[in-house]
Write a protein that binds this DNA or RNA. Structure first.
Lengths: 202, 202
DNA sequence: TCACTTAGTTATCGTCTGATTACTTAATTC
DNA sequence: GAATTAAGTAATCAGACGATAACTAAGTGA
């Protein structure tokens, strides 16, 4: 396989593993296993574990902004821009670990390298909302706040309690703008995959 | 010193260290150094590093709910309850690492022990808002969303760029309800303390 | 004062982890 | 078809980390 394709494969695997366990909680061996390559190869392709995580963050940000710009350009639908971008954001959850890897980066702002990258990435998103999407400061703030709540809900695996706890049910239906069914479906397949992995002794 | 007092001292130190580096990024030796005790003693008092982190989360949640209930009881001021609790939340930022340790717990929802504790803690806060503070579902959702954005801003050390970037300036003034001056002051003293620690070679 | 508890420390160990080195195998080029 | 490059793997290492064990010093009560 071409090195470039293998690199993207490793990045995808790393995104889900980092999303689950965070930067420090993830080992390069876990990423390698998820990507189907040897541990030294992961290190060799990206240099260091830190550079691998920075590449994951960059990829996540690229995907995020691409999805937002696509939602901005897609003027055919009569849906207002705020909702279109909101739906685009939730659509990113289909790429498992993407939003959570970003979140892990956000809470490591103290780190010299990771913190700087995460900060710049966040500011870039804000600039998009304000200067490309035409959001007001208040709209931008509310959009980002809702996004952070969604990330937290995903991180907490709140969807697992959707049917078990009426308060969770209520909170989730208010947190996810009309896309709660998609989130529940994603969570279900994810749980099934996890069960399969556990079953095969991985 | 009494073991109970020493335990609280270690918990405070652990809160700031976990807040800075997360669960996996923190070593028991770092916590011990910050608390002024030996590394094995930290382990002996709490059993394991995981139990120490769970104790940090529990303490953070206790402080948070206590602050909220105090804001609820304090009916003398003519300030509406939403704002009172909002200000109480920002006041928690004075306890360095408290909100960030919670945030680190939130994004580790996959972990069997930590995830369960973080999930239950979050639900407890939602229940308080809905059934004690009398918030509507929408008010609760918006409050939590704003809280998660604030946590993210703190995690990203966004306040460092307050004077350097007009977009950051705008974002922060909209994210922090009128308490931005306090946040900037906290960030400044924190940077000074960090510089002192670096200066003494710690 | 002697036995006992409380509050710690020093020394050490086994395991895990990121990284390095050296080797292999399959294309591709000349 | 020999030489070179690309795409990997197996073996291994040095450092760090959580945890354990063994020891010590300072109260404290009978």
């Amino acid at each position: 396989m071409r090195a470039e394709d293998r690199r993207e494969l490793i990045l995808q695997a790393a995104t889900t593993v980092f999303g689950d366990h965070g930067y420090d909680g993830t080992t390069t061996a876990q990423v390698a296993r998820a990507a189907g390559v040897s541990q030294p190869y992961v290190v060799r392709v990206f240099g260091t574990k830190e550079k691998l995580f920075l590449a994951v963050l960059q990829r996540a940000l690229d995907h995020l902004l691409a999805a937002f710009r696509a939602a901005l350009t897609d003027t055919v639908s009569g849906v207002p821009i705020q909702r279109r971008i909101g739906l685009a954001y939730i659509g990113l959850a289909a790429d498992r670990g993407l939003l959570l890897s970003l979140m892990h980066g956000f809470v490591l702002g103290r780190d010299p390298e990771i913190g700087a990258a995460a900060r710049e990435g966040f500011i870039l998103v804000y600039r998009f909302l304000r200067h490309e999407a035409g959001f007001s400061p208040d709209e931008s703030q509310q959009f980002l706040a809702g996004g952070m709540l969604i990330n937290t809900m995903i991180g907490l695996r709140m969807t697992d309690d959707f049917d078990r706890d009426p308060d969770v049910h209520e909170l989730l239906t208010h947190a996810f703008p009309e896309k709660i069914d998609i989130m529940l479906e994603l969570a279900k397949t994810e749980r099934r995959e996890a069960a399969e992995r556990a079953g095969t002794g991985a």
